[in-house]
Design a binder for these strands. Structure first.
Lengths: 96, 96
DNA sequence: GACAACCTTACCGTTAAAGATAAATTGCCT
DNA sequence: AGGCAATTTATCTTTAACGGTAAGGTTGTC
């Protein structure tokens, strides 16, 4: 399943999710309730052992109140800046 | 399958993929060869009828030589404020 | 009309994601 | 040490992604 580059993508995305979650003091159980995704499934995603679907990532991003791109952006990306919101860092609740 | 917001996410991502692909003059068959994803599967993804995995999106992004975030960054990354608390966080301090 | 190049849809088989549950594990306390 | 919360891992079931193939549906051009 999945080659090395893809593995790294999953591991990186998982790390970002975990960082975001723990920065908010949420447990897997709590995030599970917020997302409707089971805690074991979240654990697998955060440890890069599962290849989540797009809508699964979206539910996580929404629950953590970060953008989907925040969770999957790999440094090498120049995202065209959707104007007015740089998303350059942790967004602490500035929405327009 | 999938609620409305998620459906929109899939449709939007599909549109972006299709726009990018056709802007490069690629057919579904050609993109299928580049990505290793079958043309029928790509068709379903581009029309928002399938919920692709993260690594699937990555393969498409790579083949089209755009960033993953380009394909999924849209208006959907801003979640409504839901101003439930002054700290802006969930307060779930006391859970057992 | 017939043909061609796309794209879409439908079916089937394999594989994996995701829910549920339980068990094992780690870590963090007093 | 023990207990407790959090996380990981394992097993099972259901559902869906994905590839393959084949069949339909455009939209053209000759």
């Amino acid at each position: 399943m999945v080659d090395n580059a893809e593995k790294k993508l999953l591991v990186d995305a998982g790390k970002r999710i975990r960082e975001t979650r723990s920065a908010q003091g949420l447990s897997l159980e709590q995030l599970a309730r917020l997302t409707g995704i089971s805690a074991p499934a979240l654990s697998l995603i955060e440890t890069g052992k599962r290849d989540p679907r797009l809508t699964t990532l979206k539910r996580i991003a929404d629950a953590l109140r970060v953008s989907l791109t925040t969770l999957i952006a790999n440094g090498s990306d120049v995202v065209e800046p959707s104007p007015s919101s740089s998303t350059g860092g942790y967004d602490l609740g500035e929405y327009h």
